[in-house]
């Protein structure tokens, strides 16, 4: 059971932001090392070698893996005794402080004036979403998702005649494959593909992004979706787009799918494209302090 301790929450949040920006999750780093071992394309192999070296350098020097430290997005699970607005304020302050320390790049630009706020705070930035806690401990999930990968995230509406994609899982397969094909070069591959089927448009984007928090070894508990995850991982790689779009054996590192009920009139398939620098961390507060992990 965790006490209500806002100071501990603050310290944990600061550590989580720094860890997310500088230390790539172990599952992703290992997958990239395996991709390097089996790559035979000269340009893709060279790109993967730089990627693997960079992961090690960033961790050692605690500097950001990628200069685009992304849209800071927090999902917070909070027991009832905690004050949400106070927690949101602490997150905002710690994001600004991390920016001041150059752990994050200032990424919040005013739409009307074009001015960068300079500290990563602004309207709806950072994004903080609250959920009730499952138990009585505080859990914070953070993803720092870069703009390039967010730009190639997309949403399909089935049926889609041009691809012969109907309103079924076979149609989903076709449009997700199309999304991977279209992202080539732009999303810093090899990518991790979060997919949401169903929901309304907003729920689709949210659910798809949340799939990027899953471990690469995680399989959907729904057998049909687990099979589709596997098929799309295999076929995505068969496109031979390769690291950085240079042509090569590894185009995607993982495909993670979730489904929500849909409106009878709608069938949305939403893709959240995660670049290879998938910066995710999870913090759990307990009476012992805070612990930061990869997923």
């Amino acid at each position: 059971m965790s006490r209500v301790d806002y100071d501990l929450f603050r310290r944990g949040t600061a550590a989580t932001i720094e860890a997310a920006a500088t230390v790539l999750p172990t599952d992703v780093a290992d997958a990239l090392r395996r991709a390097l071992e089996k790559e035979t394309g000269e340009a893709a192999r060279s790109a993967l070698a730089y990627i693997v070296e960079n992961i090690e350098l960033s961790q050692k020097s605690t500097s950001p893996i990628c200069q685009d430290t992304g849209y800071p997005t927090f999902w917070v699970e909070l027991p009832a005794a905690w004050d949400r607005s106070r927690v949101a304020a602490i997150i905002r302050e710690e994001v600004a402080a991390a920016t001041e320390r150059s752990a994050l790049r200032p990424n919040a630009v005013d739409i009307v004036t074009g001015k960068n706020s300079g500290d990563n705070t602004g309207i709806l930035v950072p994004a903080v979403y609250f959920d009730d806690a499952q138990g009585d401990s505080v859990k914070v999930k953070l993803i720092l998702k870069g703009g390039g990968s967010e730009n190639v995230s997309c949403q399909y509406k089935l049926p889609m005649g041009s691809l012969g994609a109907g309103r079924d899982l076979e149609g989903v397969r076709k449009v997700v494959l199309h999304g991977i094909f279209e992202a080539q070069g732009f999303g810093c591959g090899p990518g991790i593909i979060g997919v949401a089927i169903g929901g309304d448009r907003a729920q689709g984007y949210s659910l798809a992004k949340k799939q990027l928090m899953r471990s690469l070894s995680d399989r959907s508990p729904v057998p049909e979706l687990a099979a589709l995850e596997e098929t799309l991982l295999r076929q995505g790689n068969e496109l031979n787009v390769g690291a950085m779009g240079f042509g090569g054996a590894t185009t995607v590192l993982g495909v993670k799918i979730a489904a929500a009920h849909r409106h009878p009139a709608s069938y949305f398939v939403t893709i959240a494209y995660g670049c290879w620098a998938l910066r995710r961390k999870v913090m759990v507060l307990s009476s012992e302090g805070f612990a930061v992990s990869d997923h």
Binding site: Y50, N54, L57, S63, D68, W276, A277
Partner: peptide
């Protein structure tokens, strides 16, 4: 083409 995301390496 520089390798995307290898920001620490390139900064060094």
């Amino acid at each position: 083409h520089a390798v995307g995301g290898v920001a620490t390496l390139l900064a060094q």
